[in-house]
Design a protein around this nucleic acid. Structure first.
Lengths: 198, 198, 198, 198
DNA sequence: AATGAATGAGACTTCATTCAT
DNA sequence: AATGAATGAAGTCTCATTCAT
């Protein structure tokens, strides 16, 4: 990538991030291109030099968020850890992203709705891919007798719901740090899978 | 309430229900008053005889949903059951509503966002009231030594996240019935609160 | 049709006519909806109560023009006149419309281009139907030996070209009246079909 | 003209030709400078090194087309042929250009409309000059008794209309070759001028 | 000689809302 | 009680044009 291209890519990324911020703050519809432009100190028209439509902007937010989530999860799955640890780490990593890249991930998790059909299919497929990593960890645990036999799909739905709800209530000023929250969630959500010592 | 008023109230309720259906299907913005009117076999103008604004319609959806949730929860809290059972029943009741009155509750849970500030405050307060019932059950359980000591706020956030995520994936054609789902969720989410037998 | 509907239809017709006028004066692109609205003493938005898009407006101009042309031609074809007279009358009728309903027909003849594909197909089909009436007259004349044997398609193309070019130069202030023009055209264009007396 | 200037002129000509092609294919408005640039493997900005505005581009198309038509017609008028032959050759030459240099001439004949007023006056004047060659041929024929007495203006309008309509229907795949078409048109259009043998 | 980047004016369109009837 | 009609504000997007480099 040439210097020029690099700068352009960087600017596009910047636009996406700002868009994400506004989408997450005001919602997709209420964040106007005017808003986005103003935030970037661009004019409305200029943005269209980098993107094709507002929808594309939303789609890129989703893509970026899914990229981050999936990449991190692949590392975790590949790591040389016990299953239970992998699952907990997966949950913690997810929470870190939800909290760290708040706007991006918030958009991706909460505004799937606004995506037009063609884009949506792509994103749904990727989310499915992501969730499958979790399901597989659960299934393996069950096979190996580490976990109780549970329908992994449901278990993962519970996990996903719990963590994806975080942006709805999380505040930096809260009494628990994000690490504590992550730890608590990981424990709470994995615990029901474990065999109860008789 | 006079006969006239009664009829009007009834019709208004009807409008709200239809609005809820469309809001949940297409999202608040994409469901136009035209759509709503058409579904009711009214004209756009007529709706304004019963409501003041589209926002009000959304607000009423929230109110109605919160009414149902809170009323049911009050019954449960007042019942003469063990704490643990109350908590489980609370979760199951919530799930039943999410799944049964899907559109109304889906709107309330997923589109808080679109509410304008003044309405939102009211709703947030009511949701807080609702969640407090759950928190109190957890706290009592902890006090009585039935549950492990956990920050009840977090526990309830987990529970709420898990159950509120259901509309995102639930389908009537799924392999588990709603009762089975409710049962599984209640067990999975309460289990981590329990003291592990040493 | 109820009174209400009638009035609405009338208004829509009015919008189409004004649109036609502006389209023919400034071209489809340069006539903005703002222009059209201003001419009608409507606001931009109001127009959309009657139509769905600017394209539809253009399409309606085409439809209306074709309606008029075809209806008139059907009468002529059905009349009890010699072939040669029918052909001449067809030409004269066409010219009268081009000159009389100038804007409407001008748009239809000159701005087929701007129609989007789906609309265009419909219009092309109708124009074909219209031209076929002329071709058939020529063919019959040839069969009966009244006309020289000529490829009727070409002959009709010549006729159509000549008459459709009129809006490009016609002015009410010209030295010939429209009737004289029509007469001259009809004679000039039919004459080459006639058998030369040896 | 220096080498530099020559190259620039050449490139400008190239741009005009490509513009003509796109204007005739998509219409003036729908052919964007982006389109034109892409076809030339330039960037939008670069085109402005050679031209001043899109309008100028359109104007140049007109100029070029008129140049070609007028030059050819001057040759014909100057030739040592009978009047009738000159007229027929004029028609045939025009048709050849319409069909051969399709895009350029099509733009000039069909998109006079889009020209802004100042440019348009120039072009209208040149077209008038061109048509005057035809009118003069008709007038001379009338004077010499070769042609029937007809208003030459009208006759030429008919001729121009017929030939300028060709781009609207002509296809290379048609059953008649362009030479046959030209021959047929010339005969059909000149024939009504001739004295009928008594 | 060429281009990437930016601009700004303006176009079409949508829609909640109002109001006379 | 209901509705047809109209409005106006706002939003997305397009594109010719400019300019520093």
């Amino acid at each position: 990538m040439s210097f020029r291209e690099e700068r352009a890519a960087e600017r596009k990324m910047n636009i996406i991030k700002v868009a994400a911020k506004l989408f997450s703050e005001k919602g997709y519809h209420d964040a106007t291109l005017e808003d986005i432009a103003k935030n970037l100190k661009y004019t409305k028209g200029s943005i269209y030099y980098y993107i094709n439509s507002k929808q594309e902007l939303l789609f890129q937010c989703h893509e970026l968020a899914m990229d981050m989530l999936i990449n991190r999860m692949e590392e975790i799955v590949a790591a040389d850890w016990p299953l239970e640890v992998k699952l907990k780490e997966g949950i913690k990593a997810h929470i870190e992203m939800v909290v760290g890249e708040m706007s991006l991930v918030t958009v991706a998790l909460g505004q799937e709705f606004e995506l037009q059909e063609d884009y949506r299919q792509i994103i749904v497929a990727r989310r499915d891919q992501y969730e499958r990593y979790f399901r597989r960890l659960v299934d393996e645990g069950v096979e190996k007798g580490i976990f109780r036999p549970v329908p992994s799909k449901m278990a993962v739905f519970i996990i996903m719901g719990a963590v994806n709800w975080i942006p709805r209530w999380y505040s930096e000023k809260g009494s628990m740090s994000k690490e504590e929250i992550a730890e608590f969630f990981a424990d709470y959500l994995v615990r029901p899978l474990l065999q109860t010592q008789a």
